[in-house]
Design a protein around this nucleic acid. Structure first.
Lengths: 143, 143
DNA sequence: GCTATAGATGCAAAGTGTTTGCAACTGAAA
DNA sequence: TTTCAGTTGCAAACACTTTGCATCTATAGC
């Protein structure tokens, strides 16, 4: 199963850092690995609370920060005030609905010419990543 | 002068909406038109305060919101908590330094292949805008 | 110019999302 | 089992933004 391998990949990457695997972090990794969207801290916290009722928001914030540093997840920019995290760290681009605020991955083939896109650095600039954001109206909002 | 025409363009666009031009808004438009970077609300407020000491942050927030709705400026996404505004509403792309957090416009020609970039909508998706963000290390931080 | 009024302003308070200090706790290695 | 770096939960502090409200002001009509 795809999902299990993603979960295992995250767990191993975490453990390989020599950090202790607590109950909270294991559950958090499971929650993250099970999602293909871009949950807010609050959504993640809610889901985690169902399993570990005493868990605190602080732990969620701190763990997400840690996971982001380790490259297990990515923080994605969103016009909403709240931070969102993306469990998919491979290169991909996003679609943002300007109506409902929904943020989704661009399906393969949705962006023509993206492979040719390249940053031509002048001076000492270094480019690490190029990300594309398409703004528009999603299926639901256009209907 | 380029700067004056940008200023006039903003003023006229604002007045053409039939909204009253207050002292605060005129000064705010002048501050915005004078910048080519992406100031935070706080930076804008500070600059405005020098001219109008009694001005309140609330007014700055409300006016920036209004200007954004009118399309005079654009809000740009930035990982920092604070909102940033871009007085340049023409299509252009951004460079974000992952080290110092500096956000700048990509100079012309810095992005190869961007003209071919197109969104191939499936279903009812509509694309209004495609924006590219290059992350990396800026000149200062790479030095 | 004077008046009426939609819209703008400033203040204080409330809201929302996030971070921090700290004492208690826990996973993993010895 | 002991040890300790690292983690946790709580409460409080923070940073940024929004809101309610009474007052004020730019503009249009007289």
């Amino acid at each position: 199963m795809e999902q299990i391998s993603h979960l295992e990949r995250m767990e191993r990457a975490y453990l390989s850092e020599g950090l202790p695997m607590t109950t909270q972090r294991r559950a958090l990794i499971e929650v993250l690995a099970s999602r293909k969207d871009h949950p807010t801290v609050d959504e993640i916290f809610s889901k985690l609370s169902r399993r570990i009722p005493e868990v605190s928001r602080t732990t969620v914030y701190r763990s997400l920060e840690m996971f982001t540093e380790l490259g297990l997840i990515k923080r994605v920019e969103h016009p909403d005030a709240a931070a969102r995290f993306d469990p998919n760290v491979s290169e991909h681009h996003h679609f943002l609905c300007t109506n409902c605020g929904g943020l989704s991955d661009l399906p393969a083939g949705a962006l023509r010419g993206v492979r040719r896109l390249a940053y031509v650095g002048k001076g000492k600039h270094t480019a690490e990543e190029i990300s594309v954001l398409v703004r528009g109206s999603c299926d639901d909002c256009s209907a």
